[in-house]
Design a binder for these strands. Structure first.
Lengths: 349, 349
DNA sequence: AACGTTTATTGTAACGTTGCAAACTGGCGT
DNA sequence: ACGCCAGTTTGCAACGTTACAATAAACGTT
């Protein structure tokens, strides 16, 4: 038993005791380093008795594997990078989605790192950087576009990833998406049921796939029920709220004003409610509003509006699942999750 | 010049070319590995000519240092851990603060990892875990309490950290805080100016330091102007909004109802506005409301209310600065930043 | 008793980096 | 010619882990 007992720090010995390593555990348990490594990793080649002895000693010494060493050796980082555009993904989105992912990753040893996206001109730059520096085992990003160069890049380089939203690529890729087509259809139908005949819906920029789905669903429902659908041009979900309000105002001043509004998100709901208030229009009387609800806060919007739920926490959890599967090498076809709208037609109480 | 030219992968050579390492660069440049390492690190012992030659070669080969190896060798992770309670920090807070930190850390090579907080019973557990596994060079957390065991723990173990909010400890520690005392005073004074005589303010739980500051500021202002201040008991900022509304309703039914409300945050503002709406009370007429504004969304609350700004993006940036300074070993006294309310008394929009 | 076969363990060699001590240059004073 | 010093550069040894090939022991088979 040769144990290093010399301690140069003298009196402060207690507070600066060196971390036990595999070697320490091996010496203490009387096995080879490799054996200990395998025992702790649950390798079937190791005898049950040995495994128990080893984990007992490891436990006693408070052994903790060194992540940096594992990472250097295996090349795996145990990190998932989330590309976040803090200009767009505001209000509930960030915390709900992030919370869901945390929950989904709890206990797996994986950590989430946030990478600011949308700051540089070249969107691929952050992704290249992650790949170059091996900063993560997988990447997640949002606001997926129909023909997304990020998806193309990651597919080409066979780098694990999952997107929030889909692409139009024929090559399948892992994603978690909300069925916005159904959402739009439901929202329009609900307004029709309330007797509305001219529906206005500010859309996401059409380069986003979910923008296409929303358009399709809304148009389909409007057509089916013979009502008018107006999608304001010149503004989208990311526009300055004041510009959006101005556009809605102009629309209202025209020959036939909309009498129903579909809001894709909490921000849009607040902006719309503010606009209606400023115009002296009251939801439930002259007009009606249906909005997507991403968090309980929508319940406190006044006047009350109807909402259709998108569970972002569940989205985050699903995302975690998909990513772990992808890292594990599962086939991409099984990693496409489409969440349906929940709590449809519920009046926010 | 001995270069390994054997490539076992055969035809797929082009796509799987091995990453250049320090050794590759050293061989190519004709220097020792150590020299290259130092040259790239800007060590003054290396001759200028050598440095140039080395960086030229490194550039040409596309050399990227291996983080895992650096980390193993130096013990530094280049990671900052943000403890996030996704139950509490909702709405704008998460994205604004996170965005600010990202901006502040841009170009430094530091990454932010999110650690879910508030899930386990023992709050120290996540922090211990970070320390045990060396997951970060520094830790940030929010909702600091007057006598915060997390602060105590991190100070005791000399682990770099910074808090959002302060403690009452005599030992100084790095923090970035918003001057909530001034905020509360300003808010109350503004309501007094509008002729309000009975101010109601739902407070954060009193264990939070910012809760104490808010109480102090509000009480001081109320005293100075001889108005009544009611702090509802039984509920706080984290309570179920319905409970808060019920409490406000009960208060209103009492002998003297409040005529002014101070809201500490966007959620509270929305909840209060919803409550007032449900009671048939109109801000600007029977009552007035002053709220903290953390993002432009407050401009779209209706009826319009007055707001006082807390710049969370600036807070995040300051946090990044403080953390970098702390990691660099600067004295703690220089790392206490108190941000003042901005845009005071601005009518929203 | 010699043999293959399985089962369990071991030793060695990396992974790519940096810290340390040692060694090589000239140039310069003596 | 000698030693010395500053300015540069070098080789070696880790950091803690896992992959790989090799070994040792145990056991049934012929």
């Amino acid at each position: 038993m040769t144990r290093k007992t010399f301690d140069p720090s003298g009196g402060r010995a207690a507070e600066k005791l060196p971390r036990p390593t595999l070697r320490t555990v091996a010496q203490e348990a009387g096995f080879a380093v490799t054996t200990v490594s395998r025992a702790l990793a649950g390798d079937p080649r190791i005898a049950e008795a040995t495994r128990e002895r080893v984990s007992e000693v490891a436990e006693r010494l408070g052994y903790v594997p060194n992540r940096a060493a594992q990472r250097l050796r295996t090349g795996r980082t145990k990190v998932i990078s989330l590309l976040l555009n803090t200009r767009h993904e505001f209000l509930s989105f960030t915390s709900e989605f992030l919370g869901g992912m945390s929950e989904g990753l709890a206990g797996t040893g994986y950590a989430i790192t946030i990478t600011a996206d949308g700051l540089a001109d070249d969107r691929l730059e952050v992704i290249r950087n992650i790949r170059r520096h091996s900063l993560a085992d997988a990447i997640v990003f949002t606001r997926t576009e129909c023909f997304d160069d990020r998806v193309r890049y990651l597919l080409e380089h066979d780098f694990p990833f999952a997107t929030h939203g889909r692409t139009d690529f024929t090559t399948p890729h892992p994603y978690v998406d909300f069925d916005n087509e159904v959402f739009a259809r439901m929202a329009v139908e609900r307004l029709v049921e309330k007797g509305r005949r001219h529906i206005c819906m500010v859309m996401p920029n059409e380069r986003y796939t979910f923008g296409q789905h929303l358009r399709f669903g809304a148009r389909q429902a409007a057509m089916a029920h013979g009502v008018q659908l107006t999608i304001p041009t010149g503004v989208d979900l990311d526009s300055d709220p004041d510009e959006i309000a101005a556009t809605l105002r102009a629309l209202h001043a025209g020959p036939n004003a909309p009498d129903g509004y579909v809001c894709v998100g909490e921000v849009m709901a607040l902006v719309t409610l503010a606009y209606l208030n400023d115009m002296g229009l009251t939801p439930g009387l002259e007009v009606d509003v249906v909005a997507k609800r991403a968090s309980p806060i929508s319940n406190h919007f006044r006047p009350r509006i109807e909402t259709i739920d998108e569970d972002l926490r569940a989205t985050g959890r699903a995302m975690a699942k998909v990513l772990l599967a992808r890292i594990g090498g599962a086939p991409m076809e099984d990693m496409q999750i489409l969440l349906k709208p929940e709590g449809a037609f519920s009046i926010s109480d």
